[in-house]
Structures are given as structure tokens and as C-alpha cells.
């Protein structure tokens, strides 16, 4: 028996919003420790890794490990049926071929359940090695979304350069070029408004702006985004999911031919 109850169904809606551009379907691996999802986008350029810890749920029970392959389009339709203030519970029997979503209004006057068929998906689990990154940048998630949106008007690629002074985002294309420099915040009153750089060595890498833009669909999950970079390894774009977990996007850099 698997059962996970979350008072804020909006978290699940936001998680889905954050992955459904990149993935058509995904396997939710449920165990005693929580719910994990790892999947490559269809073009194998980026990897999505999500973790929701069991202790972050209001109720969590998982007697046996269960992998639930879900069509994210169908899941989106079902979650649209939940009001933001509803309490959501996901339930499945061991070896089940369906999952049930139960939505309860805060006053318990309306209770709905939706059963969704599960899919058998080929699992391509990749090992993500522990990496010491040369640069780790934290900045307001809304600012990062704005930068990705603005720069994607110029070209297909965004160059991210990180030095101890700050971080620069650049793009160039047919209409011209654009550079956005963010300096490290000197006085930090509110952490969520700060730009911070932890740097071992300067790094400059080039990424596809289309993917960076897709990652920013997670912006509503967190005030802060963390970018981790090292030469010749994938960028990690990380958003915390409240006190319950995180979503990380790995994007391979572009290389010169």
C-alpha cells in the first residue's frame, strides 16, 4: 500500500508544471524515504531529477517500493480538478496498475477521487556523481526567469560567465547581442533577493536557451535558484520545493565543433 497526503495540493501542481514541458511521461519511484523521479527529456539533452522526502508529507506510507509510470498530460488534467487549497492524497495498492488522487476541500465538504491508469515505462536511470562545482551562483528565481526569457529573443544559446565579481549572461543572434551582468549583492537583508557567488575558478559555458527557459517553469516553487557549473560538465539548475525536497535540472553545455 502506498499513500501520500499533502495539505498543499498546489505544491504537486507546481511540480507538474515544472516538468511537463520537458517530459511527456515519467516514473515516480516511491519508497520509504519518499518520491523520486529521474528522467531525460526526449532529446537526451537534459535530465530532470526530483525528490520529495517522505517526512515532508502530512501523511506518508509506503509498505513496498513502487514505481508508477504516469502520463504527465493525464496527470495535469487530473490535478486541474483540484483547488489550490485542497488537500491531495495519492494512493496505490502494491502491484497496482492505477493510482488514485483524492482531493478534499479544507472543510471536508467536497471529496473527489480520480483514478488514473499507470504506464509501463522503460527506466533509464543514470548515476549522477557527486561533483565539486567550480562556481555556485544563487539568485532570485524570478530574476533568472526574466533573464532567460529576455535573452532567448536574441539567440538559441546563452553564455553564462561566472567570476568572483558576479555572473554575466550573454546571447547574440541576427538582431544583435545582449549582455546582462549581475554583481554579487554586498548587503544582504533578505536571502531571497541576494545574488551570491561561491567560486573556486572562473567558468564560462554555453547552453541552449530553450532548455533554460523550460527549467524556469519551476520558478513558482522557490524564491531562489541555484546554478552550479564546472568546465565540461552539465550545469545544475536547482529549485528547492518548500521544506519537502528539490528539483534539479542538468543541462549539457554546448561545445565548439
Amino acid at each position: 500500500m502506498f499513500e501520500a497526503r499533502l495539505v498543499q495540493s498546489s505544491i504537486l501542481k507546481k511540480v507538474l508544471e515544472a516538468i511537463k514541458d520537458l517530459l511527456n511521461e515519467a516514473t515516480f519511484d516511491c519508497s520509504d524515504s519518499g518520491i523520486q523521479l529521474q528522467a531525460m527529456d526526449n532529446s537526451h539533452v537534459s535530465l530532470v531529477s526530483m525528490n520529495l522526502r517522505s517526512d515532508g508529507f502530512d501523511k506518508y506510507r509506503c509498505d513496498r517500493n513502487i514505481s508508477m509510470g504516469m502520463n504527465l498530460g493525464s496527470m495535469t488534467k487530473i490535478l486541474k480538478c483540484a483547488a489550490n487549497e485542497d488537500v491531495v492524497t495519492m494512493k496505490a495498492q502494491d502491484n497496482a496498475d492505477t493510482v488514485t488522487f483524492v482531493f478534499e476541500s479544507p472543510n471536508q465538504e467536497k471529496v473527489s477521487d480520480y483514478e488514473m491508469k499507470l504506464m509501463n515505462l522503460d527506466q533509464e536511470h543514470l548515476g549522477i556523481p557527486e561533483t565539486e562545482y567550480a562556481c555556485v551562483v544563487r539568485l532570485p528565481a524570478g530574476e533568472f526567469a526574466r533573464i532567460c526569457r529576455d535573452l532567448s529573443q536574441f539567440g538559441e544559446s546563452v553564455v553564462i560567465s561566472c567570476t568572483k565579481e558576479g555572473v554575466k549572461f550573454s546571447s547574440a543572434g541576427d538582431i544583435g547581442s545582449a549582455n546582462i551582468k549581475l554583481a554579487q549583492t554586498s548587503n544582504v537583508d533578505k536571502e531571497e533577493l541576494a545574488v551570491t557567488v561561491e567560486m573556486q575558478e572562473p567558468v564560462t559555458l554555453t547552453f541552449a536557451s530553450r532548455y533554460l527557459n523550460s527549467f524556469t517553469k519551476a520558478t513558482s516553487l522557490s524564491n531562489v535558484v541555484q546554478l552550479s557549473m564546472s568546465p565540461d560538465v552539465p550545469l545544475v539548475v536547482e529549485y528547492r520545493i518548500g521544506e519537502i525536497g528539490h528539483i534539479r535540472y542538468y543541462l549539457a553545455p554546448k561545445i565548439e565543433d
Binding site: 537534459s46 543514470l126 548515476g127 542538468y250 549539457a252 565548439e256
Partner: peptide, 14 residues
């Protein structure tokens, strides 16, 4: 500009 790597080239299959 540039070629896009396949993410599998970086990460190890479990």
C-alpha cells in the same frame, strides 16, 4: 553555435 552533448555521455548508467 556549438554542438549539443547528449547528457548520457556525462552520467553513468546505474
Amino acid at each position: 553555435p556549438g554542438r549539443q552533448f547528449d547528457i548520457q555521455e556525462y552520467f553513468l548508467e546505474d
